[in-house]
Write a protein that binds this DNA or RNA. Structure first.
Lengths: 227, 227
DNA sequence: TTGATATCTTACCCGTGGGTAAGATAAAAA
DNA sequence: TTTTTATCTTACCCACGGGTAAGATATCAA
């Protein structure tokens, strides 16, 4: 897939030289924009803000993006890409439905602590054009359906106590999605701590009574790109 | 307390007559604004939009509010008022920690389906002045602490299985808060359905194994004002 | 009925921010 | 070195929306 993290240095360094390297610069803009969108919201973030943080001027941005909205959409695309990546990884990990749900929560929670991932759930969909919105909604729907099917599977194989999969999925997804509202990279807990604790706490709630939880101290690793 | 819902008819009817009734008109503006803020976000909602929906013109709004931000802040105040109201009601309902948590979730979920309640968690805090933000944050902190203390209480009295109260509170609050992101008044499920199902599902996860859940089909009623 | 006051409208100001035009400069190609 | 081309800057346009000034009109009290 695409989505390889290139820049490791602070993003403004991508523009110190005028060397022709569009890919790196494009990503630098995206990373900076994503961070500002999370700090100030999309609406309050000016293209001047983005440019200033990169030590360039606003019109320079238009060499890499056609509009402000295109920058936003690319953030969404990058973020949903990360999520989908995790999901396909989990699909391989065969196991009980409960195990899949746990792996899902862990992976998903991790993505919610990465800038692009946070953008997907934190930013206001109303800033997208109807076409872009449809695209993003498709991704989100896919995620929800995947989780719901894991829960259904768990009920059928007996690892999850019977419940309404739709409500359970809403509850789990809500708990995890909300992470992107309070998580701060400089905070007390690391992303992995949060992810594993959420996976543990939430699956514990689903687990069928009488059976032990499959991963008592479960910390499963997921691909962790981006700085 | 204050916060009595006055208007039951569509809010624009408050302005058909020029009769002097500031309280009703103020609330009509607030209700309309809250609804628009939820539909379009605060940033994209114009004061002209608000005025148009009330069949008046923009400057008329300035007879009732000093600025756009004051309207926003009043929405927050109304919403946090509703939440606090529910909370004090619950504090009276003595019982196990688990029962209190269940009552909390039920009441809180209900508030999250009411426009003013949704505003509190859905709207962007960045649109508030630092002074107003501090006020709102104080309310939110209080809510979080209350929930955490209920969980702690439950662990101590044995009704809740031992866990990290902070993480558990984050998970529960997240699940319930997220309701305001997908709930639609015209949707398939009623507010009460959602609230009772969430209360049931989430407490079931906390309940200490071996003991039956205190309210298997529990639907507890909470004061339900506003249309 | 009449004056006083609250209510609401028309017309306007102006800061802000997305986006563009046109030209300067540096990097790569020749 | 010279030419070409991508890169970036300065200066600008203009639509939009929060907020205001000043005046018209309905309501209420006397």
């Amino acid at each position: 897939m695409a989505r390889e993290a290139v820049a490791v240095q602070p993003h403004w360094k991508a523009f110190v030289s005028r060397r022709r390297d569009p890919a790196t610069k494009r990503e630098a803009i995206l990373q900076t924009a994503a961070q500002l969108f999370l700090e100030q919201s999309y609406g309050r973030t000016t293209l001047n803000d983005v440019a200033k943080r990169l030590n360039i001027t606003k019109p320079a941005l238009y060499h890499y993006f056609r509009s402000k909205e295109e920058i936003l959409l690319e953030c969404y695309r990058w973020g949903t890409g990360l999520i989908e990546e995790s999901l396909t990884t989990i699909a391989g990990h065969c196991g009980t439905g409960l195990e899949k749900v746990e792996a899902f929560i862990y992976a998903y929670a991790n993505v919610m602590t990465v800038n692009f991932g946070r953008c997907v759930m934190r930013l206001d969909e109303g800033d997208l054009s109807s076409k872009a919105l449809a695209e993003v909604r498709t991704y989100k729907r896919k995620i929800d359906r995947r989780l719901r099917s894991f829960i259904q599977e768990g009920i059928e194989d007996g690892s999850i106590t019977p419940c309404d999969p739709k409500i359970a999925a809403f509850a789990i997804a809500g708990a995890v999605n909300w992470i992107c509202m309070w998580y701060e990279p400089e905070g007390a807990r690391t992303a992995e701590e949060i992810a594993s604790q959420f996976a543990q706490t939430l699956t514990q709630g689903l687990a069928r009574r009488g059976r032990p939880a499959p991963h008592p101290n479960g910390t499963r690793k997921v691909s962790n790109r981006e700085s």
